[in-house]
C-alpha cells in the first residue's frame, strides 16, 4: 500500500492558483522526485503535504488515514520526517542536543520538568549522528555548522522519529556536487533498508536523475509529466519548460 497518497490538491493565493489539482502517491522504499520551474508550486505542494498549509481542495492520506490539513506536530508523531529548503535547526544547542531534543519530542517526553535533558537518549542520538556522518561534530554548536553539515543534522533529526515518510525540500541546495551525491546516496540507503518513502524536490539534475526512482514534473500548479527518470528526461515538454540544455 502507498505510504502517502494525495488526491486533487488545490491551493489558491489571491488570484493566483499555486497548485491546481495535483495527485500523487509514494510507495515504501521509493525515492520520488518532484521537479519544476521556480514558482511552479513545488513548495506549496510540499507545505500541504507537510501540514504547514491546508489545501483548499483535495485530500492527503498517510497509510490510509486521512491527514488533510493536520498540523505538522501531529504528522511528526505519525511518522513524517521533514527537512526544509532553508535549514532550520536549534542554533543555541549543540548538534547532539538538537538530536536529543528531536528524540524527546518524538517520544512525547518534552513535558518533563525535573530530570537533566542532556543525559537522555545519548546513545540513540549518537547513533543517529553516526548514521549521517556527524558523530565527530556532536559537541559543536549547531549555529556554527557549515551548510552541508546542517543538512545532515536536519536529516538526523528527521530520522529521530523512525519515519515512514521523509519530505525533503531541496535537500542538497547549497552543497558541492560530491557532497550532494553522498547525502542522497545516504538517504537512498535509508529508504531501501527501512522501507522509508522519500519525496524530495531538487534542482540538481545529477541528483534527480541519479537517485530518484520516479520523477514528477510540476509546471504552473499542474503535473505535466511523470515516470522514470529516463522517460521524463526525454519528454519534450519537460525539456522546454524546465530542463533546457541540462537534458
Amino acid at each position: 500500500m502507498s505510504v502517502l497518497v494525495a488526491e486533487g490538491l488545490r491551493k489558491r493565493f489571491g488570484a493566483n492558483e499555486a497548485v491546481a489539482g495535483v495527485s500523487l502517491a509514494v510507495e515504501p522504499g521509493e525515492m520520488l522526485a518532484l521537479i519544476g520551474p521556480n514558482g511552479a508550486g513545488k513548495s506549496t505542494c510540499f507545505n500541504m503535504l507537510g501540514g504547514q498549509l491546508r489545501p483548499d481542495e483535495g485530500a492527503v492520506r498517510l497509510g490510509g488515514q486521512d491527514v488533510t490539513g493536520m498540523a505538522p506536530r501531529h504528522l511528526a508523531h505519525l511518522g513524517v520526517g521533514r527537512t526544509f529548503q532553508i535549514t532550520a535547526s536549534f542554533a543555541s544547542m549543540t548538534v547532539r542536543e538538537n538530536v536529543q531534543t528531536a528524540l524527546l519530542a518524538q517520544k512525547r517526553q518534552a513535558w518533563r520538568f525535573w530530570q537533566a535533558a542532556d543525559a537522555q537518549h545519548v546513545g540513540l542520538a549518537e547513533g543517529l549522528l553516526a548514521r549521517v556522518g556527524m558523530a565527530s561534530q556532536a559537541e559543536r554548536p549547531a549555529g556554527v555548522l557549515a551548510y552541508g553539515d546542517l543538512k545532515r543534522l536536519e536529516l538526523a533529526m528527521a530520522l529521530a522519529g523512525d519515519p515512514v515518510l521523509l519530505l525533503m525540500d531541496e535537500p542538497t541546495a547549497g552543497m558541492a556536487p560530491a557532497e550532494r551525491a553522498a547525502l542522497m546516496a545516504l538517504v537512498r540507503g535509508i529508504a531501501r533498508d527501512q522501507g522509508v518513502a522519500v519525496l524530495f524536490t531538487e534542482h540538481d539534475m545529477d541528483v534527480v536523475f541519479g537517485q530518484a526512482d520516479r520523477v514528477l514534473v510540476l509546471d504552473r500548479g499542474r503535473l505535466i509529466a511523470q515516470g522514470t527518470p529516463e522517460a521524463v528526461r526525454a519528454d519534450p515538454r519537460v525539456r522546454a519548460v524546465y530542463l533546457g540544455t541540462a537534458a
Binding site: 532550520a88 536549534f90 543555541s92 518533563r112
Partner: peptide, 26 residues
C-alpha cells in the same frame, strides 16, 4: 532545573526555530 530538563530544551527549540520544533512534534 526545569530549563535544563526536557521542557527547557523543548522551549529553547521553539525559540530557535518554531518551524523545526513543530516538524519534530513539539
Amino acid at each position: 532545573r526545569a530549563l535544563f530538563a526536557p521542557f527547557g530544551f523543548a522551549l529553547r527549540a521553539t525559540r530557535d526555530s518554531a518551524l523545526r520544533a513543530e516538524a519534530i512534534g513539539l
